Amino acid sequence: MQYKLGELFCGPGGIAFAAINSSSLDGSFTINHEWANDYDRDTCATYTHNICKGNGNSVIHEDIRKLKMEKLNPINALAFGFPCNDFSVVGKQKGIDGIYGPLYSYGIKALKHFQPDWFLAENVGGLRNANDGQAFSQILSEMKNAGYVIVPHLYKFEEYGIPQARHRIIIVGIRSDLSEKVSFKVPSPKPYSNIDNSCKNAIENPPIPIDAFNNEMTKQSAKVIERLEHILPGQNAFTADLPENLKLNVKGARMSQIYKRLNPSKPAYTVTGSGGGGTHIYHWKEPRALTNRERARLQTFPDSYKFIGSKESVRKQIGMAVPCQGAKIIFDAILNSFAKIEYESIEPNISE
């Protein structure tokens, strides 16, 4: 059985790459790309280059509010990482009252229109708290009313061998008429407990090839270099013992990631796609920001994965993506569920 996957808010292809490389243990269930949509041109170009091998007809560059779903090919699986801007704890958390918050409704619209066998939806952990928790309850309710039995869970990807502390809510839904025979369970992180998920291991083993895509160095000012030389691994601009001339004159901003250097023995802190100076993720030893390729490794993209666009566009794409290897674990579990193959699982940590 090969599922035809449609994707909304597809991003640069972290979910898609995971999906097309997933299968049930016996190989009887797999996933194939059918179509994808995103509003960002560079993102669509990256997705097309890596997932569709240059055939961009199935990747629709369009604002989802203008997307005509009835013209898209039928699918029996759906993925949508609906925009997190209004749900992130880094932002203002306007939730469903913001510009991006209501866009989840297009995922619900797709569920009702296509009635896929299953879906996977992804968002930030802050989704649970937006609008005093009402946004999350509303989204889950609409997914169930669209005809699905859902399993929401806050995945801490570092527990699954991913070299990054990235916490994301993933909601898996099985169509109600199939749920008596198919039961999805949250995959256990236990099989991945012995993986070296330190950021140092991810970035250095194996060494990044000299001619790797997207590996340009970021130019640092002399002052930034001097500041970084006073910051120890794991420290940031506010916890380090900085001379007065190197301290940040910023009131009310104590974001822990500002000029924070990685701790080489631990997973990286969360790779983000937004923010300006001081938020680029900084090497534990060298006084510099990570390259985009190093950031992509923390997101478990292979070195052969080419991101298209300016350096800042690529930085944003990588930060907004889902870690490929983390998503693959969940897709494998979905496919094993349909194949009736048992796998080690845990109880979901979010109640409906």
Score class of each variant (00 low, 15 high):
192 Y>T: 02
160 Y>G: 05
173 G>E: 01
11 G>T: 02
127 L>F: 12
64 I>H: 10
155 Y>E: 02
317 Q>A: 05
314 V>Y: 01
81 G>R: 08
115 Q>K: 15
105 S>K: 15
215 N>I: 00
20 I>G: 05
103 L>E: 10
220 Q>E: 14
287 P>W: 04
79 A>T: 15
221 S>L: 04
330 I>T: 04
79 A>V: 14
138 Q>K: 15
260 K>A: 10
59 V>Q: 05
280 H>L: 12
122 E>Q: 08
63 D>G: 06
268 A>L: 04
267 P>V: 02
129 N>I: 11
202 A>S: 14
130 A>R: 09
77 A>V: 06
291 T>Q: 07
95 G>Y: 09
300 T>Q: 12
286 E>Y: 11
304 S>L: 00
183 S>G: 03
351 S>D: 12
60 I>W: 00
53 K>W: 02
31 I>K: 06
329 I>R: 09
75 I>S: 09
82 F>A: 08
46 T>E: 06
52 C>Y: 01
315 R>A: 12
254 R>H: 14
352 E>W: 02
202 A>Q: 06
181 K>H: 13
205 N>A: 04
220 Q>T: 03
286 E>V: 09
147 G>H: 07
216 E>K: 15
43 T>K: 03
125 G>K: 15
161 G>T: 02
58 S>E: 08
24 S>Y: 11
91 G>V: 10
277 G>N: 12
157 F>P: 04
321 A>S: 15
138 Q>M: 13
280 H>Q: 14
345 S>R: 01
290 L>V: 03
221 S>M: 04
170 I>A: 07
4 K>S: 15
70 E>K: 14
146 A>I: 05
110 A>L: 08
139 I>Q: 11
86 D>S: 12
100 Y>A: 15
182 V>W: 04
12 P>F: 02
98 G>S: 12
289 A>F: 08
272 T>E: 10
32 N>V: 07
47 Y>W: 14
280 H>D: 13
45 A>W: 00
68 K>G: 07
68 K>Q: 15
36 A>D: 00
263 N>H: 12
185 K>Q: 12
261 R>D: 00
287 P>C: 01
220 Q>D: 03
42 D>N: 12
69 M>W: 13
233 P>V: 03
37 N>M: 04
127 L>M: 15
162 I>V: 14
312 E>W: 01
274 S>H: 13
142 E>C: 04
317 Q>Y: 01
127 L>I: 10
78 L>H: 06
119 F>K: 08
340 K>P: 00
162 I>C: 10
168 R>H: 03
63 D>V: 06
63 D>P: 08
39 Y>M: 14
200 K>E: 12
27 G>E: 10
87 F>Q: 10
132 D>I: 06
174 I>T: 09
291 T>K: 09
170 I>Q: 10
81 G>W: 06
329 I>K: 13
117 D>V: 04
196 D>E: 01
65 R>F: 02
344 E>L: 13
76 N>A: 09
77 A>Q: 07
186 V>W: 05
203 I>V: 11
92 K>T: 14
56 G>E: 00
295 R>T: 01
320 M>V: 00
218 T>K: 13
21 N>S: 11
144 K>A: 05
221 S>W: 04
72 L>T: 08
59 V>P: 04
31 I>P: 07
248 L>S: 03
49 H>W: 03
268 A>N: 07
265 S>K: 15
